[in-house]
Simulated scan of single mutants.
Amino acid sequence: MTVTIYDVAREAGVSMATVSRVVNNNPNVKPQTRKKVYEAIERLGYRPNAVARGLASKKTTTVGVVIPDISNAIFAEVARGIEDIANMYHYNIILCNADKRKEKEIRVVNTLLEKQVDGLLFMGGAVTDEHLQAFKTANVPVVLCATTDEHGVIPSVDINHEEAAYDAVRTLIANGHRRIAMISGTLQDPSNGYARYHGYKRAIEEAGITYDESLVRTGNYRYESGVEAVKYFLELPERPTAVFAATDEMAIGAIHSIQDAGLKVPENISVISVDNSRMASMVRPQLTTVAQPMYDIGAVSMRLLTKLMKKETVEQAKVILPHEVITRNSVGGVV
């Protein structure tokens, strides 16, 4: 049979109200009484009913997190930052994978709201009108994590993706490269896709390099699309001397595709990307990349959400964290 708060109270010889105060960490309980209640809880194997507590307090101390791809190391690092801060503030998280598919993202958001979460952290692709409508009817705080909405309506934590891409391409230009290809994410994605593409284009045009659409291929953020894009680039009448990939995973696919063709990185073709995932230092040559502070993005997002959930003063609802170019061995000068 399920052990109830009544059973604990009877075992400890105290009132149910006292057990409730102990379980909810109320300081107004004598140490010896608290010890007696905890001993009774342990003997009986009592587990507080979170649903019942949530109904009584109208708080579940639970946060819903929508993540685009749980198998991607980048998002795993964000989730770790979220989890650490959630633990610090005594929140539990429910993590849901949405595969960057709009219909699944909306469905997951609604499911989490049905679970009576106290707040939502959303990582995904484009924030559409359908997303905004779901967030508007949520009645709980929502923070965008590693993404933003174009109208700036929803609080968010991210980097400046356009500037990150711009800095990456400027690094190639500084090494003498003029024929620079890009492996982009989908341009419907405002961050990894369109913003990074725009940063690439702005950098080459400012350097007086004519934009050539044959040097841009759209990938799906995965290793295989980096491999296929480079196969295409190598078949051009004049191959690029450098490749900028919108993500590390596509960049590593590009490196391996270059090597499979009997060429060397960076001697024949340089490669740079944005992310600075753990894989960037594992590949050979090690990948030069623009670092996103992924752990910090998760941690700051969760801290911002705790402030909103507790109705604390929030001075800055749109947070842009710094990025930096991490120089390794995949970029060289033009021979």
Rank of each mutant, 00 (worst) to 15 (best):
I67C: 14
I67V: 15
D69T: 09
D69L: 09
I70Y: 02
I70Q: 02
I70N: 01
S71W: 08
S71A: 15
S71L: 14
S71T: 15
N72S: 11
F75Y: 12
F75Q: 04
A76W: 02
A76H: 04
E77H: 01
E77Y: 00
V78P: 00
V78Q: 01
V78D: 00
A79I: 07
A79S: 09
I82M: 13
I82Q: 06
I82E: 10
E83C: 04
E83K: 08
D84K: 13
I85C: 05
A86V: 04
N87S: 13
M88S: 13
M88A: 14
M88H: 13
M88G: 09
Y89F: 12
Y89M: 08
Y89D: 05
Y91E: 03
N92H: 14
N92P: 05
I93L: 02
I93D: 01
I93A: 03
I94E: 01
L95M: 13
C96G: 11
C96R: 10
N97G: 06
N97K: 06
A98M: 01
D99G: 04
D99A: 13
K100I: 11
K100P: 00
R101C: 07
R101H: 13
K102C: 04
E103W: 07
E103A: 11
E105Y: 05
V108P: 04
V108F: 06
V109Q: 02
V109T: 09
N110S: 11
N110M: 10
T111L: 13
L112E: 03
L113V: 03
L113R: 05
E114Y: 01
K115T: 08
Q116T: 11
V117W: 04
V117M: 06
V117F: 07
D118S: 01
